[in-house]
Design a protein around this nucleic acid. Structure first.
Lengths: 210, 210
DNA sequence: TTACGATGAATGGCCATTCATTCACTGATA
DNA sequence: TATCAGTGAATGAATGGCCATTCATCGTAA
């Protein structure tokens, strides 16, 4: 039987190598060397280079989804949930820079390479955020004139860009907690209902979906 | 004299091709064909493939910077300025999908390829946003406990992710105006001072830079 | 002895880059 | 006006290097 453990060893190695060199400049032989495995061995576990990338991505995002699901289950307050999501995301990306980079690459390149591939895992992940927003809205805690499906993109983009910076520049000026705190301030006061969810004194018209 | 016009023709072609195929899968011959020029001609104007990418990026970002500078000069209210920045950015990216994609690629790949390259144009662009935030803070309009240098990343990330979606999925559900409006709601109520910039009733501690 | 995972050298294709050659234009000469 | 070098841009076929993928072979566990 093929060694399941070896598969994860390769995935771990690939994550590292992709992060460091980027998908295209990474060589299969780099991954093989990092995993302490022969080049050919990789093809016993994966169809081709793209397949490795996708596997890395899905596996890792899957892990995060599970973790965050578990955490969110312990909470019912949407504001707290948002806080948990953001904090957890940033913590994970900080701890695992490589993963953060692979997400960046994958998100922006794969759909050009493999058109058939619909990134369900990623959608699942960001939809969790949209669901939290919806929950908050139904409780009158979040403003009703925000579209959850736009908000989720917005928030994910913000989180992603922040962790991109960690990896790119050596900007260690701010701690995870500090950044998470700042983002949460903006997000929470950005979507909170002005006065508990009744009228909107700022005069923003409520959004009407078509 | 070398034809200056030809240089821009190549840049335009490269923008298109990079956007469609991504930097790495784009072939020089693709760009040449798109620009209606021989392969070799490209090397009369650029040193190599990366050079084309960087030139595309700087040229295009440069244009946006000039435009936004001009627009901002007509305004003194930081809230309005923020609004202009966001709207303009989204409009530009919507009108020129290719540019949006090139920015994505460039931002996430080049620094792996060419370590010497410090992306000053991009920094200049996002710093404009940080400056607006600072201005608003000095006038007591924006909350003082937001770090402009974190906020700028956050906002840029959000904008960028939103325009990524335009290009990736065929999500034409929302109009530019609608999305800009939503983002502005979140951003503005996210950083506005709770009560005109005096005390902070929400109990957020003011941020103290180290 | 068999079966099967692992190996890594060899293959083949791709494509950035080069460069010998062509082309187009200028202006000097008669 | 016709002819002829001289100049430098433009061309695109050929080169060379790189690297994903393959597969003949090896080692080993049952």
């Amino acid at each position: 039987m093929k060694d399941l453990n070896k598969r994860s060893k390769i995935i771990a190695a690939a994550t590292k190598v992709f992060a460091k060199k980027g998908f295209f400049t990474a060589r299969i032989s780099d991954i093989a060397k990092e995993a302490k495995v022969a080049d050919g061995t990789i093809y016993l576990y994966f169809n081709n280079k793209y397949d490795i990338l996708i596997s890395v991505f899905e596996e890792e995002i899957g892990k995060i989804i599970d973790q965050i699901r578990k955490i969110l289950a312990t909470e019912t307050d949407p504001k707290k949930m948002l806080e948990m999501y953001v904090t957890r995301h940033l913590q994970t990306m900080k701890k695992n820079r490589n993963l953060a980079e692979v997400i960046q690459i994958e998100l922006r390149q794969t759909n050009k390479l493999i058109k058939e591939y619909r990134n369900t895992k990623f959608i699942e992940y960001t939809d969790m955020m949209a669901d939290i927003v919806r929950l908050g809205q139904s409780q009158g805690l979040f403003r009703a004139d925000i579209e959850p499906d736009i908000a989720k993109r917005f928030f994910f983009g913000a989180l992603d860009e922040v962790s991109r910076i960690w990896n790119t520049s050596a900007e260690g000026r701010y701690s995870v907690e500090e950044i998470a705190g700042q983002l949460l301030k903006i997000i929470l006061s950005g979507i909170s209902a002005p006065n508990g969810g009744l009228a909107d004194p700022d005069g923003y018209p409520a959004h009407m979906p078509a």
